[in-house]
């Protein structure tokens, strides 16, 4: 007991360092959090959150009872899974490869250029994709035809949608996502690398045994955080790439809620869906965290 008190006293300064963040979060995130109750209410703007009538789980039932619910769950999970398989490892590979480049100029050029697509707005990006993928004038189909293939209607095929979505995501985001790994690699002990070289370790061995372990904690953190976002795919890009023809492969939770909202501004329904996402995400996050604790002995909490 005494040691606990002593520890608290000696580390009071650490609490001071955390304090500003705690105050901000309390005032700007927790104070308005009562809004989550809207999910269980028939929300009326006039009556406000507290005054609106309770409806229990009615808003959730509307989501679960929808004919499209299984479809949008499947599509959301498919896009997320693909993004874990494709979108997650590519930035790591990029960072490891770039770390091997000797010429600083080339390295900086590749880095800067690879961030650039991140700044292309979603609307313009989707416009570009539609143009490039056009069956009649699109460059990709022209290339396919050049090699004797037949034009592919990328945006008409429901089962091609996930590839269009995720590959373009990687294209646009890989450079930006690799920043954190570049930074982590910067703390690799150069002396260790030199020693390994003298010991006759190949480049691959050095990457595998020295560089990679250095960034594993970062990888683990990013992975756990990513698991906590599985159901939260933004609606904008999917919505812009959606056509009547590919709906069965492109309708996801957020686009569905957006469409329902177009018919009737319904805060209760969108809040309920958001809460459902949260619950699933949290379950996945905690699972990932426990898994990581078992495998790598480190987790977020």
């Amino acid at each position: 007991m005494k040691t606990l008190k002593k520890r608290l006293v000696t580390s009071w300064q650490l609490y001071v360092l955390v304090l500003p963040a705690v105050i901000y979060i309390a005032l700007f995130a927790y104070k308005p959090m009562y809004g989550i109750l809207i999910a269980f209410k028939n929300f009326s703007i006039r009556k406000g959150v507290w005054g609106s009538a309770w409806v229990g789980f009615d808003n959730f039932k509307r989501l679960f009872n929808s004919y499209w619910f299984p479809v949008i769950m499947k599509n959301t999970l498919t896009l997320s899974a693909l993004s874990l398989v494709l979108g997650f490892p590519t930035p790591i590979i990029l960072a490891l490869l770039l770390n091997e480049v000797k010429s600083i100029k080339f390295k900086n050029a590749v880095q800067t250029v690879s961030y650039a697509p991140h700044f292309i707005s979603t609307v313009v990006m989707c416009g570009m994709l539609t143009l490039f993928l056009s069956p009649s004038t699109g460059v990709i189909n022209k290339i396919i035809e050049l090699f004797g293939g037949e034009a592919i209607f990328f945006l008409q095929e429901a089962n091609l949608f996930k590839w269009v979505y995720e590959l373009s995501n990687v294209w646009q985001g890989v450079g930006w996502s690799s920043i954190i790994y570049f930074a982590a690699l910067s703390s690799v002990d150069k002396g260790l690398l030199e020693a390994a070289e003298i010991d006759g370790a190949t480049r691959m061995q050095r990457i595998w045994h020295i560089n990679l372990p250095e960034i594993v904690p970062t990888i683990v953190t990013m992975f756990i955080l990513k698991c906590g976002q599985i159901l939260s795919i933004g609606y904008e890009k999917v919505y812009l790439l959606q056509t009547d023809a590919n709906i069965s492969g492109s309708e996801i939770i957020s686009t569905y809620v957006y469409k329902v909202g177009l018919e009737q501004a319904d805060f209760s329904f969108s809040t309920a869906t958001g809460l459902f996402n949260t619950v699933v995400n949290c379950v996945l996050l905690i699972t990932a965290n426990q898994l990581s604790k078992k495998v790598t002995d480190s987790g977020l909490f």
């Binding site: 995130a29 927790y30 308005p32 959090m33 809004g35 906590g228």
Partner: peptide
């Protein structure tokens, strides 16, 4: 707070 937010109206009133 990464996962639960009060939504547009309570946040605005806050």
């Amino acid at each position: 707070t990464m996962y639960v937010s009060g939504g547009l109206i309570p946040t605005y009133l806050n």
